[in-house]
Design a binder for these strands. Structure first.
Lengths: 142, 142
DNA sequence: TATTGTTATACTCTATAACTATA
DNA sequence: TATAGTTATAGAGTATAACAATA
């Protein structure tokens, strides 16, 4: 019974989470930045400055691809590139203030969409989601 | 207060759902099919047979792109193409048994990963998610 | 004449291989 | 000699434009 219930929970949760993520993704206003550029920018914000190879590894792309992605971000004035203090082969890439502003804007837009959907729920349903949110977070950390 | 809490709920939920969806996406074994082919196949399973133009509209791509996507699916033996009964300009694309089996396999794999994560939670946490799953589903329908 | 689907062609994004500069 | 990053080039995947078949 427990097993059968969890199989069903896996299924329902997978479908709901996948669809909700797709809707959220579609809400980006962006237009000028590609999804990959946006993802790289978010990684730089979250983990701080890093070398091109490290950033490429984070995003699971090859260094040549990241070279182009970063070039675009730099041209848009969202990141800075500076030589590594000790190893002059390396380049340190960091998000700047404009980059942070853009990410904040993007998040606000998606969260505004979600907040409108949440407002259509009953208070009980919202309470259920408030309880579930930290559990969903834990799922992604294991 | 309510507003502030919901702002936070939007934020937490957005992050958790986005990350969980990314992990689930990464679990596909697939290898041979592209993500777009997989998505088109799932649409055919969910909505039944349809013309190429209808399928392209569903997947938000242009007809020439869908021509190629469907060609790959047909070559892999997962869909059938047959002329429309009345309008011979149209082609009806349908998923076949092999296509359904492949989708079921793919889902089982992702759900197995999720079930393992769920098994690591406490019974209370699982109960919380069971209550939340239908609410999350409602969110995507509004 | 309008519509469905395909073919021709170009653009974007990614990859591997070759190259430059540093270690 | 090995490593970090860039440049050269090729392979997916998508798009618009032009075309063939049918309505």
């Amino acid at each position: 019974m427990q097993t059968s219930k969890d199989t069903q929970l896996s299924s329902t949760l997978r479908i709901a989470v996948t669809r909700l993520a797709r809707r959220l993704r579609a809400e980006r206003l962006d237009t000028s930045l590609s999804l990959n550029q946006l993802a790289a920018l978010a990684t730089l914000e979250r983990h701080g400055g890093m070398s091109l190879a490290q950033l490429a590894a984070h995003e699971r792309v090859r260094p040549p691809s990241m070279t182009r992605t970063v070039a675009g971000l730099e041209q848009s004035g969202l990141v800075t590139r500076s030589p590594h203090a000790r190893d002059r082969r390396q380049v340190v890439i960091e998000i700047n203030e404009a980059g942070r502003r853009l990410l904040a804007q993007d998040r606000r837009r998606r969260e505004a969409w979600l907040a409108r959907r949440l407002a259509e729920l009953t208070p009980d349903e919202r309470a259920t989601l408030r309880a579930a949110a930290p559990v969903l977070e834990r799922l992604t950390q294991s």
